[in-house]
Amino acid sequence: MNVRPAAALVLNPDELGPDPVPGMDLAVKLGIGQLEIRSAEGANALMLPDDRLKHIRALADERGLQVTALASPLWKWCRPEARPGRVDSFAFSTQVLPEKRLGWVERAINVAGILGAPIVRVFSHLRVEEDLTERFAGDPLLAKALEVANRAGVRLLLENEPVCTVAHAEPLLEVLERYHGQGLGLWLDVANLHEVGQATPEVVRALAPYVGYVHVKDYRPVGGGGRAFCPAGTGVVPYGEVLPLLRAACPVLPYALETHVRVTPADALAAGAAFLRSAVPGGLA
């Protein structure tokens, strides 16, 4: 497989529910030609049998859609003796024996191959009890995974996830500088960067050379320190500053809508697509 980068929108069908068909049909309606697959049919994509994955691929092919990314849960895990807090891992266990992890890496890359996805997301270990939290940089499994991915023509991209160990700019840059030559890139979630107080022009410029994929969601603060997800462009995430910087530094990128709006997700995705097409200089396909 060859990476198919594009300055284009990406839609995840599971934002509309476990049946991928409504999400794919919405993508067609909105003129979005690329998909991100995370879960389907009530299961994490890594847990689906090959015949169901081939069925999802066929559904996409019938509609002229390409699967651009597998939003895998790799490294969003800890040892079984650790106690993770509440974590959204989309029907995948957060406690994984170290000796089982390479098998899941290989499974994810195989799933990407079935779906035709050239990009696979990874995380960086869950933050748990201090003496049980694992380090991502230096993890021998990471070097092995990059070798396996490179042989398969798949690129691993690290998401900056606040519940994981690598979410702030300094450790992100440390890991990316260390492993970029081996193929690791950045799956940039702008809202996550804003959540840790670092969605600034300076940080975005520093991270931009490593970005291979952009996740777009938005939220508004609510009482008690919580947040309510809303259509992209209607919340507090500073996309007006960030998107022009990313476009200038990386003219060709996929921008994936991840609304998390529960009540009217299709409307939120449509509004987010319209916002991104107007907010990214030069527009998006």
Rank of each mutant, 00 (worst) to 15 (best):
G225F: 07
T200E: 04
V166N: 06
L207Y: 08
F90C: 05
E81I: 04
W77D: 13
L26G: 00
V242S: 08
D51G: 06
R178C: 06
P22C: 01
R247S: 02
A152Q: 05
K144N: 13
T259C: 02
V166D: 08
V96F: 10
A232T: 15
A152S: 08
W187P: 00
E159A: 08
L176A: 00
L184T: 13
N44R: 12
P244C: 07
R262M: 03
G103L: 09
C250F: 12
V237N: 10
Y179K: 00
L172I: 11
R205M: 07
C164P: 03
R63D: 00
E170T: 14
L269Q: 13
T133M: 06
L173F: 07
A228G: 04
E15W: 10
V154F: 07
A71W: 11
H215E: 04
V122P: 01
P171S: 06
F90L: 03
H194I: 09
S93I: 05
R38S: 01
K54D: 14
L48Y: 02
A208R: 11
V237D: 06
A169T: 14
P118A: 03
R52H: 12
R79V: 15
H168D: 13
N2R: 15
P231S: 05
A117D: 02
S89Q: 13
R101E: 10
R178W: 02
R135N: 08
Y179R: 02
E130S: 10
A145F: 04
F123L: 15
L188S: 04
K54E: 15
G33A: 08
S93D: 14
G235V: 02
T264K: 14
Q182A: 14
R4A: 09
G223Y: 14
L26N: 08
E195G: 12
L284S: 00
R220E: 07
T133H: 08
A256G: 03
L16P: 05
V105R: 04
V67P: 08
D19T: 04
E241D: 09
C250H: 13
V236H: 06
A270S: 08
R121E: 05
G64S: 05
A285R: 15
D19W: 15
Y219K: 13
E202V: 02
L9F: 09
H260W: 11
G283C: 11
P231D: 02
A8F: 13
E81K: 07
L102T: 13
L188I: 01
P201V: 11
P251S: 03
A191I: 04
L207D: 02
S124C: 13
R83P: 01
A274N: 12
G138S: 06
P140W: 13
S278K: 15
C230D: 04
N2C: 07
P238G: 09
V203S: 03
A91W: 15
A232I: 13
L243I: 10
V166H: 03
P281C: 06
L26W: 09
K217H: 09
W75F: 15
F90R: 11
A149P: 05
L65N: 00
L59R: 10
N12M: 15
R38H: 11
V87H: 01
E161M: 08
A191P: 03
L184H: 07
E161V: 03
G138L: 06
P98S: 05
V175S: 01
L46T: 04
E195F: 14
H260Y: 12
V111E: 03
V196H: 04
A271N: 02
A228I: 03
Q34K: 14
V128F: 13
A6E: 08
V196A: 01
